[in-house]
Simulated scan of single mutants.
Amino acid sequence: MNWLLVIAGAMVGAPLRYLTDRTVQSRHDSLFPWGTFTVNVVGCLVLGLLTGAVAAKAASSDVQLLLGTGLCGALSTYSTFSYETLRLTQDGARLYAAANIAVSVVAGLGAAFTGTALAQAVWG
């Protein structure tokens, strides 16, 4: 039955990723992939918060499957990040490609650590 939790979370995460990406990107006239950046950082924050909640016994492993594996797995997207970075490089926008790599990694890790710290403050 664990797989049903993952599917349920993914059924929300995938359309949420698509809609968020399109909404955010439509508001920026830039080569930088702001939509993918947004969903990835939000996914890292939610996963960090969830990981902290599970560690503090404030959330169950079922919630982790639903929200962590399902929702966050479908919401965030390493493959699109990689593709967009490659596309930027191929289009000659190497500065944007390098910025996408650096900013995405730093912001993603920062969001995950922030989520974990918030969980520790609330439930620790």
Results as ranks from 00 to 15, higher is better:
56 A>C: 11
117 A>Y: 08
98 A>P: 00
106 V>S: 05
86 L>T: 14
21 D>E: 14
66 L>D: 04
117 A>D: 02
17 R>M: 08
2 N>R: 15
102 A>S: 13
39 V>C: 01
26 S>V: 08
112 A>V: 13
49 L>W: 07
16 L>A: 15
84 E>N: 08
81 F>V: 01
83 Y>Q: 11
107 A>Y: 08
61 S>P: 10
6 V>I: 15
119 A>V: 11
17 R>C: 03
90 Q>M: 03
84 E>P: 05
47 L>F: 14
72 C>H: 08
34 W>S: 11
57 K>D: 15
46 V>I: 14
33 P>D: 03
38 T>K: 07
90 Q>W: 00
27 R>S: 05
51 T>G: 12
25 Q>K: 03
84 E>I: 07
16 L>H: 06
78 Y>A: 13
56 A>M: 09
83 Y>S: 03
98 A>D: 02
94 R>V: 10
15 P>L: 05
67 L>G: 13
57 K>W: 01
30 S>L: 03
92 G>C: 06
57 K>N: 14
115 G>D: 01
11 M>D: 10
85 T>A: 05
80 T>V: 02
54 V>A: 05
105 V>A: 11
122 V>P: 02
75 L>M: 04
2 N>L: 14
24 V>T: 01
64 Q>V: 09
53 A>I: 00
119 A>F: 10
15 P>M: 09
107 A>T: 08
47 L>Y: 07
116 T>K: 02
113 F>Q: 09
88 L>I: 09
58 A>N: 09
31 L>I: 04
106 V>A: 15
80 T>G: 00
70 G>L: 05
103 V>W: 12
2 N>W: 14
51 T>D: 01
77 T>K: 12
90 Q>T: 10
8 A>W: 00
72 C>I: 01
8 A>K: 07
61 S>T: 15
37 F>I: 03
48 G>S: 02
47 L>K: 04
42 V>T: 08
10 A>G: 15
99 A>S: 05
44 C>E: 00
5 L>W: 10
63 V>N: 00
37 F>G: 04
39 V>N: 08
96 Y>V: 06
85 T>Y: 05
18 Y>I: 01
109 L>D: 05
116 T>N: 10
17 R>Q: 08
91 D>L: 04
92 G>D: 06
81 F>L: 02
47 L>S: 09
120 Q>S: 12
88 L>V: 04
40 N>H: 01
100 N>Q: 10
59 A>N: 13
111 A>H: 05
2 N>K: 10
70 G>W: 12
120 Q>T: 15
82 S>M: 11
77 T>S: 15
19 L>R: 14
57 K>R: 13
6 V>Y: 11
77 T>C: 12
116 T>M: 13
107 A>V: 12
4 L>F: 11
77 T>H: 00
19 L>C: 05
124 G>E: 14
69 T>F: 12
101 I>L: 15
22 R>H: 06
58 A>F: 04
64 Q>G: 06
20 T>D: 09
39 V>H: 01
106 V>C: 09
86 L>W: 08
36 T>W: 03
106 V>W: 05
27 R>T: 03
103 V>C: 12
79 S>Y: 08
34 W>C: 06
19 L>P: 06
71 L>Y: 14
100 N>F: 07
42 V>R: 00
96 Y>W: 12
16 L>K: 10
12 V>L: 07
73 G>Y: 13
7 I>K: 00
18 Y>K: 13
97 A>W: 09
45 L>W: 04
18 Y>A: 13
43 G>H: 04
38 T>H: 00
17 R>N: 06
53 A>P: 02
77 T>M: 06
58 A>C: 08
